[in-house]
Design a protein around this nucleic acid. Sequence first.
DNA 1: CCGTTGATGATCAAGAACGACCTGGCCAAC
DNA 2: GTTGGCCAGGTCGTTCTTGATCATCAACGG
Lengths: 95, 95
Amino acid sequence: MIKNDLANLLERKANFSRAKAALTVETILETMKKALLAGEKIEIRGFGSFRVMPKKTGFGRDIRRNRQIPISGGRRVKFRPGQDFKKQLKQQSIE
Amino acid sequence: MIKNDLANLLERKANFSRAKAALTVETILETMKKALLAGEKIEIRGFGSFRVMPKKTGFGRDIRRNRQIPISGGRRVKFRPGQDFKKQLKQQSIE
DNA sequence: CCGTTGATGATCAAGAACGACCTGGCCAAC
DNA sequence: GTTGGCCAGGTCGTTCTTGATCATCAACGG
């Protein structure tokens, strides 16, 4: 699924124009991104939650150069699917 | 940030009615959820990607009962912020 | 709609962090 | 205001994380 799919969905479901649909999708995603960058958490019931957490990981590794790479801090975005979402994930299996 | 915040945003930015804004937000999120449940991956450039992966974890642990808990498989949803997103996360620090 | 641009994914390793379950508290949703 | 979903905590095992490169495909222009 790509951004275009979501836009198409709004075209059909909400009867939006293509431009409006695309803009709406981008607006929402952009807003969510900004909120996360501001350190805010996003919590949508029935869907899931995004949380920004300080990065605790210490070292990664560069195979090519065979050296450890200090992870100079920062933050990570963690997504957790909601209860219903998780339940459905368990029930359905991948083939 | 909660679902209501996103709806308010659409009211202001896109001049949607409250009901339409709320419905739009839910429609998008619901669709994304369904896509993930269908095993589809979502890839939005500039934002991030959601991928569904089979769960390989074998055991969890119940501290209270001091026993191991078999994690009977299922799938997990993994979110990865996009390049730009990640870069900004690094640059900004938490207070 | 097709082609182009360039971001995204996989990979390899090693090490640290997260995840599951359960209960209580807090807050999102109605 | 009420309901009930969501987060935290603890232990052990699994997964993630980092970086660089090539191929693939999302996004966009003609």
